[in-house]
Design a protein around this nucleic acid. Structure first.
Length: 151
DNA sequence: CTCATTTGACCAAC
DNA sequence: GTTGGTCAAATGAG
């Protein structure tokens, strides 16, 4: 399961990097080049995810933190529409979610549920689910995932 | 007993 | 004031 999760993370991260590279501003590109030139001691950064690189070296945080900050600053939202026939309340995306709240909005008859990823205690991933309409499919990453009926 | 879910309370933003 | 998001005690399922 860990291997699959790492593979999914790498694939998703590559997609994110491609997307960021296509839409990045000149300042971001300059910062990326600067970070790349800073990491002269090692080049295997991109093969590590945040969890697996914890024990690799002592000075890794000097170049690891800026990248995390960039990702966190680029919090994104993804809207996914699911099969109308699939009325189950459990999202079969292969990951564990813990419900931590539910709201009923005034103009919306369907309750909105809030889930946190329970796969890891520090996992920042959250998702919203509007029951019976939409739900999230993208698993672990630093993305903030939201479902909505407007997409 | 343990752990996940429920649900009203709370808080920040508007 | 309202609304959206989160917290946490109560509750239920196993």
């Amino acid at each position: 399961m860990l291997t699959v999760m790492c593979e999914n993370y790498t694939a998703l991260r590559n997609q994110l990097m491609d997307h960021m590279a296509r839409n990045s501003h000149p300042a971001d590109e300059a910062a990326a080049v600067k970070r790349k030139s800073d990491s002269t001691t090692t080049n295997n950064n991109d093969n590590n995810n945040n969890g697996a690189s914890e024990s690799s070296s002592t000075d890794e945080e000097s170049f690891k933190r800026p990248r995390e900050e960039v990702i966190k600053a680029k919090i994104s939202r993804v809207y996914v529409r699911t099969e109308p026939s699939d009325t189950g309340l459990i999202v079969k995306d292969g990951y564990q979610w813990r419900k931590y709240g539910q709201k009923v909005t005034r103009d919306n008859p369907c309750p909105r549920a809030y889930f946190k990823c329970s796969f890891a205690p520090s996992c920042p991933v959250k998702k919203k689910v509007r029951a019976l309409v939409l739900r999230y499919l993208i698993p672990h990453s630093n993305l903030y995932l939201i479902f909505s009926s407007r997409s």
